[in-house]
């Protein structure tokens, strides 16, 4: 197990370097002047020249790449040309909100996706199966941003069931910042009411964000369940008189859930990207909204930093999923 972890960590370092090469290439090889990009669209020629010198854009490519990696290792992600703020500080401020939202969304997707997929498999080709599959195909086809707008319009504006957006209302007490995730900070502060309010504010954005993942999890779990339910050991368990609930929930699910786990990891990464679309709709101050604003105003360094951070987060998730696989499936564990 230790060997496996070390091997995967080593691979991740290589992948992170590769990721840095990609963001570096986008900034430097793309047509256009990297100093101009970093300086922003409204910079004067003198400002561009100054940036070219201070940031080393006049040096050859390999030297620049080394400088770039050195900068990243020190945790310096550049500065925003619009606010003049350090991008690292901005990300430290906005990332916890996004993480909170994405964790909530993936929880929704898992909590509904696995049982729905299983139910669809149990009632294959009958009425509940058709209904659940309709959710699955629609979830994959609905544009997240549009779904978010429609939910906001109907459930928040028309019915008033949910807040329009943001993380907390103006009159709510913001808990002292510990992790940056309001629900957790509030609980640590012994204030479950604020935690619930924060959760309440996240329901609509998380719902919009989770639907594609929900659809994917339903599909995978349904297909796996269908296959597993026909296996000999399940038939054997049935013959031994073990109750159907125990068979599906424990015997079959144990095998069916592994591919769903891989899908959850993949979808977690896509959700991180999806926050760019959904956070803007609900004015949720996370890294996605930050990236979307930066992209529209051609504020280059924040976009590159967000790409890097989300790529790294995605890689880290995949690492965790791989390890979870190894813990759960002895065949994978013993391969290495």
């Amino acid at each position: 197990m230790t060997r496996l972890i070390l091997k995967r960590l080593g691979m991740m370092v290589v992948m992170l370097l590769g990721l840095a090469i990609i963001t570096f290439s986008i900034a430097n090889i793309a047509p256009g002047d990297p100093a101009r990009l970093a300086a922003g669209p409204d910079a004067t020629p003198e400002m561009v020249e100054q940036i070219r010198e201070t940031r080393g854009f006049d040096k050859p490519l390999p030297v620049r790449f080394a400088l770039y990696v050195g900068q990243l290792v020190r945790g310096d992600l550049g500065t925003s040309v619009y606010t003049g703020r350090s991008v690292s500080d901005d990300i430290a401020q906005f990332l916890p909100a996004t993480m909170e939202l994405v964790f909530f969304a993936i929880t929704i997707a898992i909590v509904f996706g696995i049982p729905l997929g299983t139910l669809a498999a149990l009632w294959q080709n009958r009425f509940p199966d058709h209904g659940i599959r309709l959710i699955a195909v629609s979830g994959a086809a609905l544009p997240m941003f549009w779904l978010g707008l429609m939910l906001q319009w109907y459930l928040a504006l028309e019915l008033g069931w949910f807040p329009l957006g943001g993380r907390l209302g103006v009159f709510d007490d913001v808990p002292p910042q510990i992790t940056g995730m309001i629900t957790i900070d509030a609980l640590l502060n012994g204030d479950p009411r604020t935690a619930l309010t924060a959760l309440w504010y996240m329901v609509l954005p998380a719902a919009a964000l989770s639907l594609p993942a929900l659809a994917a999890i339903i599909r995978v779990n349904r297909a796996e369940m269908l296959e597993v339910l026909g296996r000999d050991y399940v038939i054997n368990a049935k013959a031994q008189g073990i109750g159907p609930l125990r068979i599906t929930a424990i015997y079959a699910q144990k095998n069916a859930i592994l591919p769903s786990l891989a899908m959850i990891g993949l979808r977690f990464g896509w959700m991180l990207g999806g926050t760019v679309l959904v956070e803007g709709v609900f004015d949720f101050p996370g890294i996605g909204l930050y990236a979307a604003k930066a992209a529209v105003s051609s504020d280059f360094e924040p976009i590159m930093a967000v790409t890097l951070i989300l790529g790294a987060a995605f890689m880290f998730t995949n690492l965790l999923i791989d390890l979870a696989y190894a813990v759960l499936d002895p065949r994978v564990r013993n391969q290495v």
């Binding site: 990721l19 256009g32 990464g269 991180l272 990207g273 992209a295 590159m304 967000v306 790529g311």
Partner: peptide, 25 residues
């Protein structure tokens, strides 16, 4: 395959946004 793996490990939408950021909307 290594290059492919690295590309596949970045959420596609974010990478596309970064590229549009460099090329212009």
């Amino acid at each position: 395959m290594r290059v492919t793996d690295i590309f596949l490990s970045i959420p596609g939408l974010i990478l596309a946004i970064a590229i549009v950021g460099a090329l212009g909307p």
